[in-house]
Write a protein that binds this DNA or RNA. Sequence first.
DNA 1: ATAACATAGGATTAAGAATTCATATGAAAT
DNA 2: ATTTCATATGAATTCTTAATCCTATGTTAT
Lengths: 99, 99
Amino acid sequence: MKCKSYETFFVNFSNKSKLNIITALRNEPLNVKTITKKINEEQSAVSHNLKKLSACHVLDVKKAGKERIYSLNKDTVIPILRLVEKHVIKNCSGSCCKK
Amino acid sequence: MKCKSYETFFVNFSNKSKLNIITALRNEPLNVKTITKKINEEQSAVSHNLKKLSACHVLDVKKAGKERIYSLNKDTVIPILRLVEKHVIKNCSGSCCKK
DNA sequence: ATAACATAGGATTAAGAATTCATATGAAAT
DNA sequence: ATTTCATATGAATTCTTAATCCTATGTTAT
């Protein structure tokens, strides 16, 4: 599947676990264990998600010994999050986005 | 559920049907029947999706007789789509975002 | 008042995704 | 060479979501 259909990209932001990872990395690159502790989920689940996130270049990885350090692709992610923040402030002052 | 957790917002972009609706409305507001024809899906499925999209203010609705005219919230949606386009061009020249 | 049209909504089923568990890989330390 | 630690991967299960079907609501026209 190619990126030209954008749905795969957005899936990376459309559930809590993945969004937790993104949030955890907003300020600093982290290794898997630290992410796992920070968001309080199974290591295995985190790894599965990290794989998808980095397949889409939402995250970058680099190896450091036996660790892998994941970092946010800030060029794309930060501006998108900002837009959504703005959207929510403007449109969702009460509660919205109900399922 | 409140918008403060953004995953619900992003769900609106994370499958083909919803993204087709968004694309169909990129240039002009349309009524349900026209959207349905344009994206070639069941009227009922389209209505279900329209509800979610407008609950999140990704779309606006206005009534016109027996029709309902849906339009894109361009303030939010267009800039986000542009960012993703840019991201894809930069990062996904081959194929990426595989599931 | 009834018929025709446009759209919405509920309930069920089917499809897809996330979670979990068990195991594998690979790197550093002893 | 073996153990330990960090991470990844595959398979099975469990959830979640979307798709479908059927019916309801509301609007206009006759």
